[in-house]
C-alpha cells in the first residue's frame, strides 16, 4: 500500500506517495525523475548512487525511501545554486576529474560530504572518503587532485573573507 512520504529534497519540501519496499534510489530516479543519481550495482558496492542524507553520504540503493521521512536529502542536482556551479564541480571540470561521468555525481557527493566535515583533508583522507565510489575510467588521480584543489580554493576564500572582516 502506498503511503505519503515527506522529506526535504535539495532544499525543497517533497511529498510523494510511495510503497514500503521502494528504495530511495528508485524513488529519486524513477518517481521524481532526478536521474543524476546513478544506478551501478544495486548492492551498495559501487557508490554511483551516493546521496547525502542529513549531511551524511550514503548509498541510496541500500536505503529505503521510508527511511528519509523528515530528513534532508541532497542529490547532485541540488548542488549548483542560482546558476552557479560549486567550487567542487568547477574543479572536477578543470582537473579533468571525470571521463564517462557515470560515477561523477556519486563521487561529487562523497567529496562534498568530506569537505563539509573536514575542509582541509589529507590525501589519505580524500582517498578514504571516496573508497566506496568505484570509478572505472580515471584511476582516481585527477579526482583526488580536484578535491585537493577545492579544499585549497575554499581555504583561500575563507581567508579572504576573514581578511575583509
Amino acid at each position: 500500500m502506498k503511503k505519503i512520504l515527506s522529506f526535504t529534497l535539495n532544499g525543497e519540501p517533497c511529498e510523494v506517495l510511495c510503497e514500503d519496499n521502494r528504495s530511495l534510489l528508485d524513488l529519486i530516479r524513477d518517481d521524481l525523475g532526478l536521474t543524476g543519481t546513478k544506478k551501478g550495482c544495486e548492492e551498495a558496492e559501487c557508490g554511483a548512487c551516493t546521496v547525502m542524507i542529513d549531511g551524511r553520504p550514503v548509498n541510496s540503493c541500500a536505503t529505503l525511501a521510508r527511511e528519509v521521512e523528515g530528513c534532508e536529502v541532497l542529490t547532485v542536482e541540488g548542488l549548483a545554486k542560482d546558476g552557479k556551479l560549486t567550487p567542487l564541480q568547477k574543479q572536477f571540470i578543470d582537473k579533468w576529474a571525470f571521463q564517462c561521468g557515470y560515477c561523477t555525481p556519486g563521487m561529487i557527493m562523497s567529496a562534498k560530504a568530506l569537505l563539509d566535515h573536514n575542509p582541509n583533508p589529507t590525501e589519505q583522507e580524500i582517498r578514504e572518503a571516496i573508497e566506496g565510489n568505484l570509478c572505472r575510467c580515471t584511476g582516481y588521480a585527477k579526482i583526488v587532485e580536484a578535491i585537493q584543489a577545492t579544499a585549497a580554493e575554499m581555504a583561500e576564500m575563507a581567508a579572504a573573507q576573514k581578511g575583509e572582516v
Binding site: 551498495a44 551524511r56 550514503v58 536505503t63 562523497s110 571516496i130 573508497e131 566506496g132
Partner: peptide
C-alpha cells in the same frame, strides 16, 4: 565496507 556504509 566503505565510508558510505559506515555513515549508515
Amino acid at each position: 565496507a566503505s565510508t558510505q556504509i559506515r555513515h549508515k
